[in-house]
Simulated assay, not measured.
Amino acid sequence: MKGFSREELFVLNVLLRRPFGLRSGRLVARHAGISPTTALKALNSLERRGMVEHRHELVAEGVPKEVTVWVFRVEPYWLTDAIGLQIRNTIPPAPRLRTQRDTRVPQHFKHLFWNADLRELNTKDHGSAIAIAVLEQDNPHALAWAIQNLSPEAFAIAALPRRGSTPEMSALAAHIAGRK
C-alpha cells in the first residue's frame, strides 16, 4: 500500500479516535487542524482506498433526522502497525488537558428527557437523575457524554438499588463511579 499524505494521516488519526464518526468534512477538518477543503480531499482519497466511508444514519434529535457521518472503516487487510507508526511519527501526541464539563444536557439528547425541561436540568444539581435516565436508555452517545460530564457521585447514586433498576445497570453505574 502506498504512503499517505500528512493530511490523510491527520484525518485517519481523528477518525480512529472517534468510533461513532464525525458528521461533516468541516468537523473533521476542525478536529484535524487542517482546512475544510484539504480535509475533504483527504477524506475522498481515503474513501477511494476503502479506509473511511461516509454513511447516512438516522439520529434522534428532538425529531428523527438523517445525517451524513464520516467513519473509520476497520479492515484487517490494511490496518497494520506500519500505518500506526506513520501516524505516531507524523502527529505529535496531544497534551492531556482537562476539558471543561458541560453543565447542561445537549439538545440532541432531549428525547431521553421527555418528561423534563432541559433548560432546568444541570449536571451539578441533577447529576444522579441525568445518570439514571442515560443508563436506562440504550444510547452510547449519551452514555459517553454522561461519563465525560457527570461526577462520580452522580453515578454512585445511580448505582444504588431502586425500583426499575437492573443489576446490570447498577453494576455499570458502580463501575463508572469507581473508574472516575
Rank of each mutant, 00 (worst) to 15 (best):
E120D: 12
F20H: 13
G3S: 15
A133T: 07
Q100T: 14
L46V: 09
S35W: 02
Q137F: 05
R88A: 13
L150R: 02
R6Q: 13
L172N: 03
E57V: 15
K41A: 02
P106D: 08
H111K: 00
R88C: 09
Q100Y: 12
R55Q: 13
A142M: 03
I147F: 05
D102P: 03
L46G: 06
N139E: 13
L85D: 12
A82I: 14
H56I: 12
H111P: 00
A39K: 07
D81S: 13
A129H: 06
I147T: 08
D102H: 15
R26T: 10
G25D: 05
T103A: 05
A94I: 03
R17G: 15
Q86Y: 09
E47D: 11
I132S: 05
A133D: 03
V14P: 12
Q86M: 14
S24V: 01
R101C: 07
P19Q: 11
T90R: 01
V52H: 09
R163S: 01
Q100L: 14
P167H: 02
L40N: 11
T38H: 10
A29N: 07
P64Q: 08
E57W: 05
A133L: 08
H141W: 07
A146T: 05
R30H: 11
A39G: 06
Q137E: 12
V11Y: 04
F155Y: 10
P93D: 06
A177I: 09
P161R: 11
F155C: 04
A144N: 11
S35P: 07
A171C: 10
E66T: 15
V71T: 14
P92I: 01
A154R: 01
V69N: 02
V11F: 00
G21Q: 03
Y77S: 15
F155H: 03
E120H: 12
R162P: 00
R30N: 08
I132Y: 10
L97D: 00
Y77N: 15
R17A: 13
H111I: 01
K41I: 02
V63H: 12
L46A: 05
I176C: 04
A133C: 03
V134A: 10
K110Y: 05
I91Q: 00
L43V: 02
A159S: 11
N149S: 03
T68L: 11
L79P: 05
L112C: 00
R162M: 07
P76T: 03
A60Q: 13
G50Q: 05
G21N: 06
A60M: 15
I130V: 04
L12Q: 02
P19S: 13
I130C: 00
G84D: 05
V63T: 08
G25S: 12
A174W: 08
H56E: 14
E168W: 05
V59M: 06
R96W: 02
P64E: 12
G33V: 09
V59R: 14
Q148Y: 00
V52N: 09
M169W: 00
L12C: 04
E57R: 14
V11R: 07
K2M: 15
I34N: 01
K110A: 15
